[in-house]
Deep mutational scan, measured.
Amino acid sequence: KYFGTAKARYDFCARDRSELSLKEGDIIKILNKKGQQGWWRGEIYGRVGWFPANYVEEDYS
């Protein structure tokens, strides 16, 4: 189950295995919004990890 999707506004390079690298334009499935302050958990291309919420724009459609 996921909470919708978000589109990456910027590139983000994961610093460890718990984080999710993003490329601008990627569409991420949002799995959890209750991580550390400002971090969401998501899935993209079969990978799961945490990413900074301010790097994405949530899709409300």
Rank of each mutant, 00 (worst) to 15 (best):
V48I: 14
E58F: 08
F3N: 10
L31Y: 10
D59V: 14
R9I: 08
G38P: 00
R9T: 12
F51S: 01
I44M: 08
F3I: 15
S18Y: 11
E24M: 14
G35A: 07
R47E: 10
C13W: 12
G42T: 02
E58K: 02
D16V: 08
L20F: 01
P52Y: 00
Y45T: 13
T5R: 10
N32T: 11
Q37T: 11
I44S: 15
F3D: 08
F51C: 01
T5L: 12
K1P: 02
D26R: 00
L20T: 04
R17A: 15
R47D: 08
S61R: 13
D26P: 00
F51L: 02
E24W: 01
I28A: 04
R41K: 14
Y45K: 15
S18T: 13
E24S: 13
Y2H: 11
G42M: 03
D16S: 14
K33G: 03
K33I: 06
G38E: 06
D11I: 03
R17L: 14
R47A: 08
R47N: 08
Q37R: 13
S21D: 15
R41A: 07
Q36P: 15
L31Q: 05
Q36V: 13
N54M: 10
D11C: 09
I30Q: 02
C13G: 08
K23V: 10
W39G: 00
V56M: 00
E19C: 05
G49L: 00
G49E: 01
E58S: 07
N54C: 13
D59G: 12
A6M: 03
D16Y: 06
Q36S: 10
G49F: 01
E58G: 07
I30G: 03
R47Y: 05
K23H: 11
G46D: 10
W40A: 00
D59H: 12
R15S: 07
S21C: 06
A6R: 01
Y45F: 15
W39P: 02
A53C: 12
W39H: 05
Q36F: 11
Y45Q: 15
A6C: 12
A8C: 04
S61G: 10
R47F: 02
S21F: 04
A14V: 01
E19L: 04
E43V: 06
L31G: 02
F3M: 13
R17Y: 15
D11A: 12
Y10I: 12
E57V: 14
G4K: 09
D26I: 04
C13M: 11
S21Y: 05
K34I: 06
I30F: 02
F51I: 03
S21N: 07
G38A: 04
G46R: 04
A6K: 03
I27L: 10
A8V: 13
Y60F: 14
Y45L: 14
G35Y: 04
Y10H: 15
Y45S: 15
G4P: 14
Y60N: 10
I27D: 11
N54H: 10
T5C: 11
A6Q: 04
A53E: 10
V56W: 05
D16N: 12
S21Q: 04
E19D: 04
I27C: 10
Y55G: 06
G38D: 08
Y60I: 13
L31W: 09
W40C: 02
I30D: 02
D11V: 04
E57W: 05
K29R: 14
K29T: 12
A14R: 05
R15Y: 06
K1H: 12
E43N: 07
D11H: 05
N54E: 14
D26Q: 08
I44D: 05
Y55V: 12
G4E: 08
W40N: 05
N54D: 15
A53Q: 09
W50Y: 10
Q37G: 14
L31R: 06
L20K: 03
E24Q: 13
F12P: 00
G38H: 06
G49A: 06
S61C: 15
G38M: 02
G35F: 06
D11N: 15
F12T: 00
R47I: 03
W40M: 06
V48S: 13
S61D: 10
A14Y: 07
R9F: 14
N54G: 13
Q37S: 14
L20M: 03
K29V: 07
A53S: 12
K23N: 04
A53G: 06
S21V: 01
I27H: 11
F12L: 02
Y45M: 15
